[in-house]
Simulated scan of single mutants.
Amino acid sequence: MSTGLLLGKFAPLHRGHQLLIETALAENERVLLLIYPASEVTQVPLPVRSGWIRALYPQVEVIEAWDGPCQVSDAPEIMRLHEVYILSRLAGCRIDRFYSSEFYGDHVSRALGAEDRRIDPARVRVPISATAIRAAPFANRHFLQPLVYRDLIHRLAFIGAPSTGKSTLAEALSQRHSSCWMPEYGREYWLAHQRQRRLSPEQLVAIAEGHCRHEDRWAEQANRYLFVDTDASTTRQFALYYHGRVPPRLEQLAAQCPQRYALCFLCADDIPYADTWDRSGAANRQRMQQAIRAELERGLRPYILLSGTLEQRMARVGEALAALPGQ
């Protein structure tokens, strides 16, 4: 059985990497891929990056090199450090071909006793590098698979009771940051499916799932940030408020919110109540707001309270965005 090997940080995985992987798959019966930590160049965790490869190429055997060396250079001691580590992780597995587009293809292939398969080293077939993508993800998103690009976007959740300014704020921020925003899917669903102004618990699950699907599609078009009006934790509050129970699937989606969003903003109820036909009144807004805030604090989910005018709220969000890693 012929075996090919690739290695790298894949930070992020792009079409040049995919050319390497697909060439290796075409030329070998077995393909191994060693993926390194990359905290010095990206905030995307190693399991997320390895997950991209597993999702796109399930036939590739992915090895997460948590203890792999981070330094890369042509210094003899650094090259030897990598060679020793790679050989130790392979544990005697014979490699027939080593695939890369970098200088280290030479010395790693020799250490493995494998063929040096250098693919597109001049970046002619795929004129991009991970460094260029990290510098300008939006401009280079055509070199990325959608599931990869989505994970490079900071998703920002704006939650709160009805009529707390979430939609207005999310839309205004998207314009200021030349990006896009995700309207509340639940409102769209409610208008189409409500019966006597109510939805069933199962329909609330459909809202949370539909919101996630729509959000993923919006993330593919976003520029650095996706401003999201409402999340599954708020849908959970509606289930409690109207039915006194939360379906297990909705509990699961609500529990994922702290990991799904880079930041959570609670919009205060200090603005005039917009008493439209589809809302339940200012008193209900206050009760719902108290429940949402209590749930945030009980669940120890970090959040930033936004109050005051639209401009004051936008300024506070801007401060939080500037403090995000890598900004």
Rank of each mutant, 00 (worst) to 15 (best):
R150W: 02
L152K: 05
L152C: 01
L152Q: 04
I153R: 04
H154A: 14
H154M: 11
R155H: 14
R155F: 06
L156Y: 07
L156G: 06
F158D: 14
I159E: 11
G160K: 02
A161S: 15
A161L: 12
A161Q: 11
A161G: 11
P162M: 11
P162Q: 15
S163E: 08
T164C: 10
T164I: 05
T164D: 02
T164Q: 00
G165L: 03
G165T: 00
K166N: 03
S167A: 08
S167I: 01
L169V: 03
L169H: 01
A170T: 07
E171G: 07
E171Q: 14
E171W: 08
A172S: 09
L173Q: 03
Q175W: 05
R176S: 09
R176G: 00
R176V: 09
S178M: 07
M182T: 15
P183M: 04
E184D: 09
E184W: 10
E184K: 06
E184T: 02
Y185A: 03
Y185F: 15
Y185P: 03
R187M: 13
R187C: 13
E188L: 14
Y189N: 05
W190K: 09
L191K: 14
H193G: 01
H193F: 06
H193Q: 03
Q194E: 12
Q194G: 06
R195A: 12
R195W: 04
R195E: 12
R198F: 08
S200F: 06
S200M: 03
S200A: 10
S200L: 11
P201K: 02
E202K: 07
E202R: 09
E202H: 06
Q203C: 10
Q203E: 15
L204H: 03
L204S: 03
A206R: 11
E209K: 11
G210W: 06
H211Q: 15
C212F: 14
C212S: 15
H214L: 13
E215Y: 04
E215K: 00
E215I: 04
D216A: 10
R217H: 01
W218L: 06
A219W: 05
A219N: 04
E220T: 06
E220H: 07
E220W: 01
Q221D: 08
N223Q: 13
N223I: 10
N223T: 05
R224N: 07
R224F: 04
R224P: 01
R224M: 05
R224C: 04
